[in-house]
Nucleic acid binder design. Structure first.
Lengths: 351, 351
DNA sequence: TTGTAGGCGTTATCAG
DNA sequence: CTGATAACGCCTACAA
């Protein structure tokens, strides 16, 4: 296939493989003449060094792996873009892997990347268990291998690696204060899966924000989704049929919000009139919706940059600055301020 | 780091490295006893084989590279998802690279992947020149290396590798017929960049569809965008200010359509009333728009599947069926059927 | 400045 | 079925 090796280059250039290698790796101990001849030979043969063989001896590969939860979720593709551009600026190639919200797919990718000796990994970890999620045994093995690794967006509560996460409490405070000032009292929450730390964080911040605003928390107003479109659709139906008739709902990510909005449209439920909706993640689909949906958004660009910086610090064995990203809340009056008086729910009429 | 090698495993298991290797690679020429002991040793040591070294000897790596143009474009992330799932079903790991619509980034990724000896590549090629785009010299080198490769979505007119592309003529015929039957006569086109073959194909199909419907083609009604959001915004302003006052516009991809819609919203131009819009790519943002935008969509799932199949055929050196995917057209009446009588344009009133 | 001679971790070959 | 041995492509002492 690409059978041309450094020996071929050396032969054509009339030098030894060692000299050719030195030229190729920029070793100063080379004569200008040797350099010229080797470079000519490389050009002539179209030689591309075999990274496998190279990193068998040396160790740096100038590449990192990035594992995201779901390529099709704009939240993660924005993150991927940010990571990729910052890594590139630092001279690192990024290989993107898609876990598809599945820990087995995560494990395959990470194991393959580890065995291919990337210089480090930036991972949105796929958890298994309760609460913030717990590591798979493969994840533990990979962490034990001591490859430089940072978590981004999510964490695992039983693994101690540097992590870049966002904090949504302030934004939820604002959102709920806005809803309350418009008369909303029963606010539902469509949350994420137990294995994702972000789901837990958002859920807790939601409860805390209710309390901070003097509203009662109620487990019955919490729907456990899985961050994917289909569960948002389920949540939408659950919301409409809820016996407590909540007048507003906060949805913990964009795919679920989109799933929910599609259901509501089908059922002719009037978002923003019958009830109010606030969703995490500022994506085009939510802004284009009629009426536009209020959103709580993280700064993915900053998150990606921070993740790359943190990883570089680990690779260089420096101290990493402990970073915390705070989400911001964007209120779109047409939606979040819809008073519950208009709500079908509060009148007991439901599709 | 992961210093445990197959020799350690062999030592613990009390067999030779060769035997350990056979067990690990599923070679049938192994005794049950050897298998058991090796597996126990692997478990005990947490051994992970070094893929670098492995593929230095063998050649298969059970992995492929996928290069897409833009991770943040839902069109490509859907494609990535499809490719990844089908490759996974075929036992192949997928490494995703983001060209970011930039041929230099493409070249870096492909060169790195080639040197890491993936088994094959599925590429949305980034062209350079005129028309369907022309290959970079790195692309040529990579093709010359004879690594199994297929193009998907786009092609390069000076490179002959199997390619999976879509054909939009029928869909555009339908769209323009629908527009015409609603009285539209001057239809604008916001197209893609010259280096993308899809841009050329869609532009030609647009002209052909006009002719097929007995409408004149007019270069003045064509705006050259670049498939990214910002150029869609430019196109939107161009459209509103156009001296010929077209009453409908077809936009060649979703990011440009979204950019355009945002501008029109800001300027209070009434999409679907003042003028009609049809856009390529069925993405949530276009469906959520008020009113929903008519879309022309390809089946990305089928495209991804076909690309994986074609690549597998190349890898196995089989004949690949020359595949051609036809795009499907979804007409959403509320928009595409808006009669031009309502158009601000035809009345000469423009924001 | 250059060449020679190992060796990185694995698998293919060949003899037993 | 197993074990020794060589080789994959490259890099790096070490010696010249």
């Amino acid at each position: 296939m690409n059978a041309v090796t450094i020996k071929d280059v050396a032969r054509i250039a009339g030098v030894s493989p060692a000299t050719a290698s030195r030229v190729l790796s920029g070793n100063p101990a080379t004569s200008p003449e040797a350099r010229a001849r080797v470079e000519a030979a490389v050009e002539e043969l179209g030689f591309l060094p075999n990274a496998q063989a190279r990193s068998l001896r040396s160790t740096k590969t100038d590449s990192i792996a990035l594992l995201i939860s779901d390529v099709r979720n704009p939240y993660f593709s924005d993150l991927a873009h940010a990571v990729e551009q910052h890594a590139r600026a630092a001279g690192l190639m990024t290989f993107i892997g898609n876990a598809n919200e599945d820990s087995a797919q995560q494990d395959d990718f990470l194991a393959t990347m580890l065995s291919r000796r990337v210089d480090g990994m930036i991972v949105v970890p796929q958890g298994l268990g309760e609460q913030a999620g717990t590591a798979t045994s493969m994840m533990r093995r990979i962490v034990d291998s001591e490859i430089p690794m940072v978590f981004v967006d999510r964490t695992l509560h039983d693994i101690a690696v540097p992590n870049i996460t966002a904090q949504s409490r302030e934004a939820l405070n604002e959102a709920i204060a806005a809803l309350k000032s418009n008369g909303h009292r029963r606010i539902a929450f469509i949350g994420g899966p137990k294995h994702a730390s972000t789901a837990l964080e958002r859920h807790r911040a939601f409860d805390a924000a209710l309390e901070a605003n003097g509203l009662p928390t109620d487990a019955a107003l919490h729907f456990a989704g899985d961050f994917r479109t289909a569960s948002g659709a389920d949540g939408a139906r659950w919301f409409l049929a809820h016996p407590l008739a909540p007048s507003a709902v906060i949805i913990a990510d964009a795919p679920m919000a989109i799933g929910a909005l599609k259901v509501w449209r089908e059922l002719r439920a009037k978002v923003g009139t019958d009830f109010s909706v606030v969703a995490f993640d500022e994506v085009d689909a939510l802004l284009m919706h009629d009426p536009p949906i209020a959103t709580i958004s993280h700064n993915l660009e900053a998150m990606g940059r921070a993740a790359v910086q943190a990883l570089l610090a680990v690779i260089r064995q420096e101290e990493a600055d402990p970073l915390e990203l705070v989400s911001s809340f964007t209120l779109r009056p047409s939606v979040a301020t819809a008073p519950p008086e208009n709500a079908v729910h509060t009148e007991g009429t439901r599709p």
